[in-house]
Simulated scan of single mutants.
Amino acid sequence: MPALTIRDVPDDQIQTLKIRAAQAGKSLQAFMQDLIAREVSKPTMAEMMERLNRETTARVSATDIVAAIDEGRAGR
């Protein structure tokens, strides 16, 4: 598994992360791995829009719609 190095992180931010890791009962490394895993599991807005487009695209023709309406009216 590749390593990830982040340079120039301010000391106060590192201290906050260490405190949060300790509060979660984790090492800083485990805490950061969880943080990264949570972030990459969330889809981006662009990914969500693509998914919505894919899932909401109707595959019904106007002819199908008119036929369904006519069928409904005939069943009254």
Rank of each mutant, 00 (worst) to 15 (best):
A46T: 12
I19L: 14
L17I: 10
R54P: 00
T56M: 05
T57A: 10
A22Q: 14
R73S: 02
G25E: 06
K18L: 13
R51Q: 08
A22C: 08
T63V: 14
A30Y: 12
G75V: 04
T56F: 07
A68T: 06
A21S: 10
A37Q: 12
D34F: 11
I6M: 09
A30Q: 10
K26V: 10
L4S: 08
V60Y: 02
Q33R: 12
V66Q: 03
I19P: 00
A58T: 11
K42L: 15
R73P: 00
A24G: 13
E47A: 12
T16Y: 03
A62T: 06
A68Q: 05
F31I: 01
M48Q: 13
M1A: 12
I36K: 04
Q13E: 07
V40I: 15
V60N: 05
T56I: 06
A58G: 02
M32S: 14
A24R: 12
E71Q: 06
D34C: 12
T44E: 03
A74D: 11
A21Y: 00
A58D: 02
R54W: 06
V66A: 09
L4H: 04
D8V: 10
S41Q: 14
M48S: 12
T5V: 15
E39F: 09
D34G: 15
A62G: 05
R38E: 12
D64I: 00
T16F: 05
S27P: 06
F31W: 13
P2Y: 02
T44I: 10
V60A: 08
A58V: 13
A3Q: 05
E50R: 09
K42V: 15
D34K: 10
S27H: 07
L17W: 08
E55Q: 03
E39I: 11
I6G: 04
I14V: 14
T63A: 02
M45H: 04
L4W: 01
D12E: 09
R59Y: 03
G72K: 01
Q13T: 06
G75L: 15
L17Y: 09
K42C: 11
K26A: 13
I14C: 09
D8P: 00
M1T: 08
A3W: 03
S27C: 14
A22Y: 07
R7C: 07
P43L: 04
R38G: 13
R20D: 13
I6L: 14
D64Y: 00
G75R: 03
R54S: 08
P43Q: 05
K18I: 13
A3P: 04
I6V: 15
T16M: 14
M45I: 15
N53M: 14
E50M: 11
R76E: 05
R59F: 08
F31C: 04
Q15F: 06
A21G: 07
P2I: 04
K18A: 10
L35T: 10
Q23K: 12
Q23Y: 06
V60Q: 03
L28K: 00
P43I: 02
P10Q: 03
D12H: 10
I69D: 00
M32Y: 00
K26F: 10
M49N: 07
K18S: 14
K42I: 13
I14G: 02
Q29V: 15
I69G: 02
L17A: 15
G72F: 05
D12S: 09
T44P: 00
M1Q: 06
L17C: 13
K26Q: 15
T56S: 11
R59C: 10
L4D: 01
D8Q: 09
S27I: 08
I36S: 12
V60T: 09
A62W: 01
D8F: 08
A74T: 02
R38W: 06
K42P: 07
